[in-house]
Nucleic acid binder design. Structure first.
Lengths: 204, 204
DNA sequence: TGGTTGCGATACGAGCACGTATCGATAGTT
DNA sequence: AACTATCGATACGTGCTCGTATCGCAACCA
C-alpha cells in the first residue's frame, strides 16, 4: 500500500517478485461487492473475498493484518470528489447535491455500501466517525451554504429551518434509495423532489 | 404459544408443570433488544438471548424449532394498531401518520428493529414480504388516501405526485430516526416536517 | 405420593470463519 | 544462474454458534 508512495519518493525497488496490483484491485472490488450484497461487515468473510477476487487468502493477509483493516481501506477507496456546483440557481445546486445521494448507478453502489456498514447504529464507531468527518459533514456543510445563500438572495423563504430542510431533501432521496423492493429511482427523482419541496404542497 | 388459545377453547389443561409465561415474554423481549442493539439477525445468538432473558437454551428450543422461527415471532409481536385519524384536516392526519415512523420512543424501538432486520436488502425475503404486506403497505395506503382526500378538498395542489410526496414525508422522518449520532428527533419533528412541506421553501 | 412435564445448567458434535504455516511454482533483480 | 519475495493452494488449530442430549430439581395434577 504505502510501498507505491515510497517508490515514487525514489527508494530502490525491493528484491523479489513484486506484488500484483491487479490483486490489490480485485481484493478491494470483491470486498465492496460483498459489503453491498451481504449487507454489512458481518457478511464479509476473508474466504469469500479471496474466492471472489480469484486470490489466495495468503495474498490478502500479506497486505492487511485483519478483516477490519481491509474494510477500512475498501471504504476509503469510495471517496469521490464533491460534485461541482454551477452556482447559478439554488434550485440547480440543490439538485446536484441531492443527486449524489443515491440516484445515479455509481452513487447507488457507493451510498449502498455506506449504509450497509453504518446503518445499524454504533457497531463501528471509529469507522463511522472517520467517514462522517471526511465525507459526510463536508457535503452537509456545502448544502447548508447553498440554503443560506438561497435565503440571502431571496430565492428561499427567510423563515425556513435549514437543518429541517436538509432532513427533508436528503431523507427523501436516501430513503427511496435504501428502500428494498422498489427498484432504482427514476433519473429525474432528485429534480422532482427538489421542485416539489420548493413549491410546497398547498395551492397558492 | 397456540396453547393459550386451545385452553381458552375449553381443552383440558395438560399434565405436568405448565410453561412459564414469564419466560415467553423475557425471551421475546431479549430477542428484540438484541435485534436492535446488534443491528440485525446476524447479531442475535440463541446463547445471548438465553443469557439476557435469564433462561436456559432448552427453554427456548422447547418453544421454537430454530432461530429464524423465534425472530419471526419476535417481529410479529411488534404489530400495533394503526393510529386513529381525526379526519378533520389533512395536515393533522399527515402528522399523525408520520409521527408513528420513529418520533416517539416506543415507535423508535419498533421502527429501529424493523430496519435492523430489513435495512440490508433481500437477506430475508420471506420475512420482508410478510411484514410489507401486513404492516407497511396498509399504512402507506392510508397515507395515500389522506393525500387523495386533500387533493379533492382543495387542501392540496391537484398536480402533486402522491408517491413522491410520500417519499418526501416518510423519508424525512425515517432518515432522521435512523441516522446514527444525532440523537432522537424533537417531539414536534413530524409537525415541522409536514408544515414545511405544505408551505414550500420559496416565498409566496 | 406417584406421574408427568417444564426448568436451568452443562456437555457434546458439527460446521464455519479467523488467522497462521507450509507447499511448489512464478516473476522479478543482480 | 543464484537469489528473493509473491503467487495460489491447502492444512491446521482456535473459538464461536447451532441444535441436541442429559442431568437433577421444581411445579402441577390425581
Amino acid at each position: 500500500m504505502s510501498e507505491t508512495i515510497e517508490r515514487a519518493a525514489g527508494a530502490a525497488r525491493p528484491p523479489g517478485r513484486p506484488r500484483s496490483e491487479r490483486a490489490d484491485k480485485a481484493i478491494i472490488d470483491a470486498t465492496l461487492a460483498l459489503l453491498l450484497e451481504e449487507g454489512g461487515v458481518a457478511g464479509v468473510t476473508i474466504e469469500a473475498v479471496a474466492a471472489r477476487a480469484g486470490v489466495g487468502k495468503t495474498t490478502i493477509y500479506r497486505r492487511w493484518p485483519n478483516k477490519e483493516a481491509l474494510i477500512i481501506d475498501a471504504l476509503a477507496s469510495l471517496k469521490e470528489p464533491d460534485p461541482e456546483l454551477a452556482g447559478v440557481s439554488v434550485r440547480d445546486d440543490l439538485v446536484a447535491l441531492t443527486r449524489t445521494l443515491g440516484v445515479e448507478k455509481r452513487d447507488r453502489q457507493r451510498v449502498g455500501v455506506f449504509w450497509s456498514v453504518f446503518g445499524h447504529g454504533d457497531r463501528h464507531p471509529e469507522l463511522h466517525g472517520r467517514f462522517t468527518r471526511d465525507v459526510v459533514e463536508p457535503r452537509r456543510e456545502r448544502m447548508r451554504a447553498v440554503l443560506r445563500r438561497g435565503i440571502e438572495t431571496g430565492e428561499l423563504r427567510p423563515d425556513i429551518d435549514i437543518d429541517l430542510v436538509m432532513w427533508l431533501l436528503m431523507g427523501a432521496i436516501v430513503h427511496r434509495a435504501r428502500a428494498y423492493g422498489v427498484g432504482p429511482a427514476p433519473d429525474d427523482f432528485a429534480e422532482q423532489i427538489v421542485d416539489t419541496a420548493l413549491r410546497g404542497l398547498t395551492p397558492r
